[in-house]
Amino acid sequence: MITARDGIKLACHQYLPIQNSLPEKSSGVNTPARVMFLHGGSFNSRRYANIAKACVKQGFEVVLCDLRGHGDSQGPRGTCNYVGQLEDDIADTIEWFENHQPLPLILGGHSSGSVVCLRYIEKHGQDSLAGCYFIAPAISNTLEPLRFDEPGSKRSFLMNYWRKKPTFNPAPESALKHIPKMNNVKFLAALVLPFLRHKTVMSFPGSAKMAELEGRVLDYSFNMMASVSIPKYSKAFRLITVPTLLVCGENDEILHPSFLPTVAQWHLAPTTDKQVNMLPRLNHMSVLGGATRVLPQWLAQRWDPVEIEIVKAEVEVEVVNAEMEQVA
C-alpha cells in the first residue's frame, strides 16, 4: 500500500522475477525496467494478472495499480475529490517506487487506464518515464475516435462542425452491451453545480451481482468520469518523446479501427519510436489476450533483451501483495 498525498492508501500489486526477490541480491539487478499498468474503467488489477505474468517472464518487474476507489485501494467507490486526482496518485506511486528502487519506468494501461496515463504525461511530463503503452485507449468524449455513433452524435456534430452529420452509424446490439451509458442531464447538472460532482453520471453495463464478485465499480461520478477523459488528446500525444506502443483490437466496440494509426501518424512526433498493433478479430476486452503477447515482445525489443534471455531460462514468478486470479 502506498500513501497518496491526501492520506488515502493505494494498492499496488508488484510482480518480480524470482532472482530479484532473493535476499542476497538487491532487487532489480537483473530487471531492465519496471512496467506500471493502469486498469480499465470499472475494473481493477485482478483482471490483468496474465499480462503481468507474461511481462515478468521476459524479466520485467510489473506493478499493477488499483486506482483510488477501485479494487484494494481506499477511497469512495467510483469517485474522486477533484478532476485530475488520478494523475496525482500515479505521480505519488511513481515517486514511491523511485525512492525505494529506481528503475526505468514504462507506464501504460488498458482502456481508460491508458487515458489516465496520457493525462499523467500531459500534467506531470515524461521525465520519469522511459516508455509508454496504450492498450485500446478509450478516448470517447470526442466524436472522431468512436467506431459507432451515439444517439446524440448528430447534435454534437452540428455543434462542433456547424453542418449536418452526413452519415449515422449506430452501434449494433452486440456492441451496446459493452459500451457505458452516460446520463447527459446529470452530467450537465454536475457541470453547472459542483456539489453534484460526486453523483453518478455514467454507468457501465453488467450485473451488480457479478460486479460485486469481480470487485468492479459500475457507477462513475462526474469527477471520476472527467478524470478518465481527455478531450484534447492530440495535444497530449504530441508531447510524447519516449518509445510508445499502441495496441487495439480490430473489432473494438469503442474505437474506430483507423484511430490508433491516425494517432501514430498525425499526433505522435515523427521522430518518436512508435509501434501500432491492430490485432485482428479482437474486441475491447479480448485485446488483453493479444496484448499479453505483444507487450512483452515490444518491451524485450527495447530494454536489454540480451540479459532477459538469460533470465528467461530460469524464470519463476513470485507475487508480492497480490492475489493471483485467472482472467475472467
Binding site: L143, E144, P145, P166, S258
Partner: peptide, 19 residues
C-alpha cells in the same frame, strides 16, 4: 464527406479550430 470522421480530411481540417 460521407467518409468516417477520423479518415475525413474535411472534418480533420475543421478540427484544427480546436487543436
Amino acid at each position: 464527406l460521407q467518409q468516417d470522421s477520423i479518415n475525413n480530411v474535411f472534418d480533420a481540417m475543421q478540427r484544427l479550430f480546436h487543436i
